[in-house]
């Protein structure tokens, strides 16, 4: 998929662990892992909003379009 999720990068910059983010966002670590590994087929605006709020960033910091 040409949409790349840069969640690992932002998490490293913020010095936050995956389970901490999952707890803040209110999703399971399994679902966060799906998102991080690029297996997710869609992301809800509410989830994106919660991630941006927790990481203090913009949606464009997390999602990137890379041509195949």
């Amino acid at each position: 998929m040409p949409i790349v999720v840069n969640l690992d990068l932002i998490l490293a910059k913020r010095g936050m662990k995956s389970n901490e983010l999952a707890e803040l966002v209110g999703i399971t670590t399994a679902n966060l892992s799906i998102l991080k590994t690029g297996k997710a087929k869609a992301i809800r605006f509410s989830t994106l909003e919660a991630i941006c709020k927790a990481l203090d960033c913009q949606p464009s910091d997390i999602l990137e379009y890379v041509e195949d």
């Binding site: 999703i27 679902n31 799906i34 297996k39 997710a40 087929k41 869609a42 992301i43 809800r44 989830t47």
Partner: peptide, 8 residues
């Protein structure tokens, strides 16, 4: 179902 399961 798969689509719904993989929507985070």
């Amino acid at each position: 179902r798969e689509e719904n399961d993989l929507t985070i």
